[in-house]
Each structure stands twice: as C-alpha cells, then as structure tokens.
Write a protein that binds this DNA or RNA. Structure first.
Length: 346
DNA sequence: AAGACGTGGGT
DNA sequence: TACCCAAGTCT
C-alpha cells in the first residue's frame, strides 16, 4: 500500500467512525465485543443482491428462532425454506442449511478466507467479508458498492464486467492491514449513502478530494456497464384447488425458478417458455384474473383459476389450511396469486 | 463463461 | 411507466 492509498483508507475509516450505519447485524458503535461469525455470515448471505431494508426483518426472525449455527443446522430444510419465503434467490436458503450443517460438523466457522470460500453459498465476496468482519483478517472485499466507489475514485473507464480485474487490483491497493472489517463496511456504507449509483452526494464525501471521477466532473457516469438484454414476457397459469377450507399445494423441484419452494400447481411456465394452460385435473374451472410479476430475467403474467373438489388431485402435494396460508412459505409470486383468489372468494 | 436466479424500492 | 438497482453465487 503506497502513501496515497494509506490516506484514502485512513480518511475513510475516520469518516466511518462518525457515520457508520447502525444495522441489526452490526455491533453497536464503539463496542469491544467480538463479532459473532454466525450473525456475520447469516447477514452477508441474506444481503446478497438484497437491500438492508428487506433483510432486517428476516434477520431478526432468523436469529430469534435459530440463535446459533448449531440451532440452524438442526432445523429442517423445509422450515428454513419457508422462513426464507419472500426474500428471493431461494438457492441461498438451501445452501444456508447445507453450510450450517457443515459448520456445525466442523465445530465452528473456519477463520480463513480460503476455507470459508469452500462452504456452500460463500463466493469470493462473502468469504472475504466474513473473514474481514468476523475474524479481522485482511481480505479484499469487493461488492457492487466497492466496484462503484473504486471505479469512480480511479476513473476506471473499462465497462463492467470486464473491469473487475482492474477494480480488484485497485481495491487491493487501498485495503489497509488493520481494521479491514471496518474498512469493508465503510466502503459499503459510503456506496450506499454517498457514492450512490444515481446522483452521488459528492459534497458530503470524505474522499471527494481524492476522486478522479469527481475531478473530471461527471462521477455518476461510472462505472460503465454493458447494456442489458431485453427480458421476455411470459404467460402462465396457476391453479387454486380447494376442498373444505384447504388448498392443494405442491413443492417445486429443487432446480430452476423458485426451486424447493411450496407453490400452487401450475401449467409448466418458465422463464424460457409460456405454460401450456392445461389444468392438472379436468373440471369446471373458474377464472380469477391474472397477476403480473417481474423476475430478474423474465416478466410473467400469471392467470389464476380455481376448482372445488371432493378428493385430492393425483400427484404429489399436500392440503394446506387456507386460514394458515401465511405459514406455508409461498414465494411472492404465489402469494399474489393466492391474494387474488382470496379477495374474490366468499 | 454468459445466463439463471427474486423481490421491493427508488426515480 | 419502465427501468435501474441492491452486501452475488452457481453452473
């Protein structure tokens, strides 16, 4: 680390001492307590591609229900998936359970980045973040905030994702030997509150004097990103099958969209193709309209139809009390579909 | 090694 | 409205 890099980390850490966000998974400011690796890991996994506001209530429920990694390791995958419902990217929940069990078996979290990286659900970012924040290891923590801050500080013109190598090298240069956990969180706080994607608040930025993009006059244009692809519009149908105050739910296959989650039966729609429209059983289906839902890589219009039956439809599934549908752990798509039926059903 | 993979909030 | 974006990982 050369001298200008030292100035940057020093300035940023001084700013962090007065401006750190208080978040449920962080120790209170000035606390001398050691970070709990379980909470650090859990929060980091929840925060992957997910806002702090969305994570906060889930984090609170998880640590209340499963206070330790051993407790989480002892939970069933099914109950963890249901508790994760609504947070998205459900493979995270499946990997969370796997990881908790591996860690419990190991007797605790590994304290080296290299070993953390081997755990399911921990990629380059999360392994570095846990190593730095929970164990005080020097690790180069690069997330989307760091990419944005660094690409502006050094006016990196190369578009993402090709710029990753350059950005990592620059982040490595400014990462200090001490307080690397604070440094990582300071970079993320700066990116979240000052060096934002749109309309950065440069006048409030502790690094304004060091920022090449600011000197050039238009920091918001960085980082340059490759153009997005258009997302396809898909059509599908979900089926509400009811019997005596209960609705028929299935569990989706572990692979693919909403993998492993409870769901209403559907017509096989996917991000790649429309559904067939065919119901799972013949009968007098009633039309309840449609909901729309946008995924990362496709937009879906989901028609919802209802049938009242006397016997269970064929195939794998379970009757679920409609009065307790909240506890089924339906992903948001199917929660919307259920609401559509319940709003019109007497 | 691009593409798959959720959801809610901001502009 | 439509688009962008958020503490990425896996295949």
């Amino acid at each position: 680390m050369d001298d200008s890099a030292g100035v940057i980390s020093h300035t940023l850490l001084a700013w962090y001492d007065g401006h750190a966000r208080q978040l449920p998974w962080r120790l209170p400011p000035g606390s001398r307590a050691a970070a709990d690796p379980y909470r650090v890991w859990l929060s980091e996994v929840m925060l992957q591609q997910t806002t702090t506001a969305a994570v906060a209530p889930y984090f609170a429920r998880f640590v209340e229900r499963w206070p330790t990694v051993q407790a989480l390791a002892a939970a069933s995958e099914e109950e963890v998936m249901a508790a994760w419902a609504g947070l998205g990217y459900y493979s995270r929940a499946r990997n969370l359970v796997k990881c908790a069990r591996e860690v419990a078996q190991l007797g605790g979290f590994p304290d080296q980045e290299e070993d953390l990286r081997k755990l399911p659900g921990l990629g380059a970012y999360t392994a570095a973040a846990v190593a730095a924040i929970a164990f005080g290891r020097r690790a180069v923590v690069v997330d989307a905030n760091v990419e944005r801050v660094v690409s502006r500080l050094f006016a990196i013109e190369e578009p993402l994702p090709a710029a990753r190598k350059q950005i990592r090298a620059a982040a490595e240069r400014i990462t200090p030997q001490q307080r690397t956990g604070d440094f990582a969180q300071a970079m993320m706080d700066l990116g979240a509150t000052i060096c934002t994607a749109r309309e950065p608040r440069c006048l409030l930025c502790p690094l304004q004097a060091d920022c090449m993009a600011r000197a050039q006059g238009d920091p918001a244009r960085l980082p340059v990103k490759a153009p997005k692809k258009a997302k396809p519009q898909r059509q599908g149908t979900a089926f509400w099958i009811e019997r005596a105050g209960e609705v028929w739910l299935v569990t989706r296959s572990d692979k693919g969209m909403l993998g492993g989650m409870r769901a209403l039966p559907d017509d096989g729609w996917s991000a790649r193709a429309d559904g067939s429209g065919d119901p799972p059983v013949a009968g007098q289906w009633q039309d309840y309209g449609a909901i729309s839902h946008v995924f990362t890589h496709a937009a879906l219009t989901l028609s919802v139809r209802r049938l009242d039956v006397a016997d269970a439809p064929g195939g794998h599934g379970e009757w679920w009390p409609i009065s307790a549908l909240d506890e089924a752990g339906l992903p948001t798509l199917f929660t919307k579909a259920a609401r559509l039926v319940l709003a019109q059903r007497n």
